[in-house]
């Protein structure tokens, strides 16, 4: 089932890579300089790191039938807090911890609106999406705050052979995969997303779970925000993380996790994030103006979504079922 879902994003990614190689054979080249790995693929990974990280948090939120539109604004807030604190002479580690704690609090706030007040996720997180960026602007007083802090710089542009940013994202991805799959969290998240009433009757603490995933999405957004701001040594409250929530949602959806909640695939999310980032790079390689990437993005999204849509699945399944008649559940008959 999961493998079937990953087919189309894999095809998309492979096509993009082949296209790149055809246009620019040096695409696959990697070289080591000063102990750092360089090359187009490394660039893709590094530039895609914040999106991937946010998409990991978003995957869990979407698995519970939710959505978090505020992650871009939260990312901007994280950068703003860290840079303001550091430029005020504060310690880097404290700055980072401070920024991340605030982001977790913001995630908890979203979770509160969704799980306790029962507000639709899309509108609950729209509040912070709108107000959050304003808050970040308030912190930076509308200025772009630049910092010169070697330690802070490492988050976004440091290297440990590979870029540190991508190492962080992959570490989080792996940790989430391990934690949700080795503990019961993943199963409970999916149960809440697939059939909340059944979960509730089986005694699942759905409220706590929903609260947790929003808090975690806030944390991911915070780290991603630090990466973005550290990469440019500045906090730009206006444009940092702008539209990143949309890219993250697309990565999740392309990766085969349905917006209707339920089964999620972190591997799919990673593929989705790679597809989006590679697409951006490809368009650039081909020489099309960067902004036009959006057209290609739209085409890829629509293609993948149509291929995964219930209607298409039904049509494919109908064809399979006429070939091999199977007895399915009898629920249809009741009522």
């Amino acid at each position: 089932m999961t493998r079937g879902r990953l087919l189309w994003p894999l095809v998309a990614l492979a096509t993009l890579i082949v296209l790149n190689i055809a246009v620019e054979p040096s695409f696959v080249e990697l070289r080591i300089q000063d102990g750092h790995l360089f090359g187009s693929i490394v660039d893709i990974l590094r530039n895609g790191a914040p999106t991937l990280l946010i998409a990991v948090g978003m995957t869990l939120v979407i698995a519970t039938r939710g959505i978090d539109l505020s992650v871009g604004a939260v990312a901007a807030i994280a950068g703003a807090i860290a840079c303001t604190y550091i430029s005020g002479g504060g310690d880097t580690v404290t700055a980072v911890l401070l920024a991340l704690s605030v982001c977790v609090l913001l995630g908890l706030w979203n979770g509160f609106l969704v799980s306790v007040l029962g507000i639709q996720p899309i509108i609950a997180t729209l509040v912070l999406m709108t107000a959050g960026r304003g808050g970040a602007m308030l912190l930076t007083e509308g200025q772009i705050i630049t910092v010169k802090d070697p330690l802070y710089r490492q988050i976004g542009s440091g290297f440990l052979i590979l870029p540190i940013a991508i190492l962080i994202s992959l570490a989080v991805l792996t940790a989430v995969a391990l934690i949700t799959r080795r503990t019961a969290l993943g199963m409970l998240i999916e149960a809440v997303g697939i059939n909340p009433r059944a979960g509730e009757l089986a005694g699942v603490r759905s409220r706590t779970i929903i609260w947790t995933v929003y808090a975690f999405a806030g944390l991911c957004a915070g780290v991603a925000g630090l990466m973005i701001s550290s990469n440019v040594n500045a906090a730009d409250a206006n444009s940092a993380g702008l539209w990143i929530e949309m890219d993250a949602i697309l990565a999740v959806v392309i990766g085969g996790t349905s917006l209707a909640g339920g089964r999620y695939s972190l591997a799919g999310t990673m593929l989705g994030a790679l597809v989006i980032q590679t697409l951006t790079t490809t368009v650039y390689t081909i020489g099309v103006p960067t902004n036009v990437t959006l057209v290609f993005k739209a085409v890829v999204v629509i293609a993948v979504c149509l291929l995964q849509s219930p209607r298409t699945t039904k049509m494919l399944r109908a064809r399979r079922e006429t070939a091999v008649p199977t007895s399915r559940s009898q629920e249809v008959a009741a009522g």
């Binding site: 080795r182 019961a184 969290l185 199963m187 005694g203 699942v204």
Partner: peptide, 12 residues
């Protein structure tokens, strides 16, 4: 599901 829900997520 019910047994796990009673134990909590952290104790798989």
């Amino acid at each position: 599901l019910a047994l796990q829900a009673a134990r909590g997520w952290a104790r798989p």
